[in-house]
Structure formats: structure tokens, C-alpha cells
């Protein structure tokens, strides 16, 4: 067994459900590398997931406490959990692009607005892959998928100058980054920074699905093909609006770093409760 997986994961759950060669398993290891570098143990972190490829690969792998929420709602579930946990316990959520940026976006933005101390790692496989390969909001414009047999026609969150991370930033997040799974050291550094953030943090990691997206949109379902394609389309983040890089560009780097700028959700709430109790002459 992989030594990092052996140290942190439940042996019966590794190597997990991802297809052979899937970037998701690389991402899983990168997250463990960050946890290891921070010296965290199973009792220091509660690991939540959602549904889809990322949820299936990562749920109940962590030796410590672990949970899974319904599709898109794990941000609300984790916000409630945050209320009950001591501040030193970290909450990590590994989710997919559909979960975070479509069905769950209102809840994700509410968590960012409240600056809930959560770290969200979005495994971006460029669409709905566990259901067989349909386009989503991170699928590059024009892509042919099983639900866009003539190519996608509506804009996604990365097309025409849009960037979903800009929305999450404006919602109040403390730390945001985007990398591809092939940028191993950068992913590890950003996940470390995110886990060290006292507030809402999110790291989007593009890995692309070679089985569905590669075969349908690129015409080549091999791991080598999708990795080469991702590398060729990776550009560093520049300030300002997203440039239109045809057909798709993955703008990578630290997108937003405002760690410590806004009070965290539970700190604010506990201060509020303490103030109410002080006014009423009670001690907490």
C-alpha cells in the first residue's frame, strides 16, 4: 500500500473507486501530502465529502471522522457541524465541480459569506463523469459530451471572461486557488494554506476525466492524452478578468488571499452569544 495512504487511510478503502489512471487518485494523494506536511493526525481533521467521482473516491477513506452529504448540500451540513466542533478541529470537504459550482453554489456562497472555517477541495473532472460524461459548468465551451453531442452551446463558469472563483471571492472567501492536478507542489502548498486558514477556503484542482471527457471531447481516452491536453492549456493567473483562451484555459495559481481579513463564522456567533449573555448577567 502507498505509504501515505497506509498512514492516513482505512486500508479497505484504498485505492478507492476511481478508474485506473484517474487524476483523482493523484489529487487524493496530494491532499494527504498537505495533511502530512502540516503534521495533522486523524483526530485533528473531520473529512466530509459529497456525491460523484470525488465523493465516492474519498468518502470514509480517512482514518478519523468522516461524513458525506447529499449532492450540493454538504456546505450547509458542514456549517452546522462547524457550530458543534471545537475550533481546533479542521473540516475538509472534497467535492466535485458539479457539487460546488452548480447544484451547491448557493450553499457554497453562503458558507463563503459567513466565512465558515471550512476547506473545500474541488476535484474538477470537467463535467458529470460518474453518470457517464455529461457537460457541466466547468466543461470547456464547445466540448462534445454525451449530453452535448453537437458541442456545448451555453457558457460555463470559465468561458467568455467568467470565472466562478471571482464570485466566491466577492462572496467573502478567505483563500482561493486553482491548479491542475499535474502541478503537484502547487496543489500541496495551496491545500496547506487552505487548511491553515481560519475561515472559508477553496482549492479547485482540474484533473479532467480521461475515460469520458477524453474519449468524447478529445477523441482520445488515454491518460497521456488528457494530461498533455491539460498541460497545453494551463496558463498562470493574471490579475483582472479571465482572458478568452480558445478553446479553454486553466488559469492557475493563488486566486485570492485574504486570510485573517474577516472574522470567522463561529467566532462571530460565539462573540454574539457571549455579548447577549453578558447583557443578561449570565456567564458562559
Amino acid at each position: 500500500m502507498d505509504p501515505l495512504a497506509g498512514k492516513y487511510l482505512r486500508p479497505e478503502k484504498w485505492p478507492g473507486t476511481a478508474c485506473p489512471g484517474c487524476g483523482l487518485r493523484l489529487l487524493h494523494r496530494e491532499v494527504l501530502t498537505a495533511i502530512d506536511a502540516l503534521g495533522l493526525g486523524p483526530s485533528d481533521l473531520v473529512w466530509g465529502t459529497a456525491i460523484g467521482c470525488t465523493g465516492r473516491q474519498t468518502y470514509a477513506t480517512w482514518r478519523g471522522d468522516t461524513f458525506a452529504g447529499t449532492h450540493g448540500r454538504v456546505y450547509a451540513l458542514a456549517t452546522g457541524l462547524r457550530l458543534a466542533l471545537p475550533r481546533e478541529k479542521r473540516i475538509l470537504l472534497t467535492v466535485g465541480d458539479g457539487d460546488a459550482f452548480t447544484i451547491g453554489l448557493p450553499h457554497l456562497l453562503a458558507a463563503a459569506r459567513r466565512n465558515v472555517d471550512l476547506t473545500v477541495v474541488v476535484g474538477d473532472n470537467l463535467g458529470y463523469q460518474s453518470t457517464g460524461g455529461q457537460y457541466g459548468v466547468t466543461t470547456p465551451a464547445g466540448s462534445r459530451t454525451d449530453s452535448s453531442p453537437y458541442g456545448t452551446w451555453e457558457p460555463g463558469w470559465s468561458d467568455g471572461g467568467l470565472d466562478v472563483l471571482g464570485i466566491v471571492r466577492e462572496a467573502g472567501a478567505s483563500f482561493l486557488a486553482r491548479h491542475t492536478v499535474l502541478q503537484r507542489d502547487a496543489v500541496v502548498e495551496s491545500v496547506k494554506a487552505a487548511l491553515g486558514t481560519r475561515g472559508f477556503s477553496l482549492v479547485q484542482v482540474v484533473y479532467g476525466c480521461h475515460v469520458h471527457y477524453g474519449a468524447q471531447a478529445l477523441g482520445d481516452g488515454t491518460v497521456g492524452a488528457i494530461q498533455g491536453w491539460i498541460r497545453a492549456r494551463t496558463v498562470p493567473l493574471e490579475p483582472g478578468p479571465a482572458p478568452e483562451v480558445a478553446p479553454a484555459g486553466f488559469r492557475t495559481g493563488v486566486f485570492h488571499d485574504a486570510r485573517g481579513a474577516r472574522p470567522e463564522f463561529t467566532e462571530r456567533l460565539r462573540d454574539h452569544v457571549a455579548a447577549v449573555r453578558a447583557r443578561a448577567g449570565r456567564t458562559s
Partner: peptide, 24 residues
């Protein structure tokens, strides 16, 4: 010493309650 949270919708409201209960 308890917490009131106004949720973004009812779906989130009950999920918040579930999460708090999951935390004890």
C-alpha cells in the same frame, strides 16, 4: 448559550440542523 442561524433556504436550514446534531 445556544445558536440561532438564519439559513439561505429551508433545505440548508435542516442540513445545518443535521450537521449540528452530527456534532453532538
Amino acid at each position: 448559550g445556544g445558536y440561532y442561524v438564519q439559513a439561505e433556504d429551508e433545505c440548508a436550514a435542516l442540513h445545518l440542523c443535521n450537521g449540528a446534531s452530527l456534532g453532538g
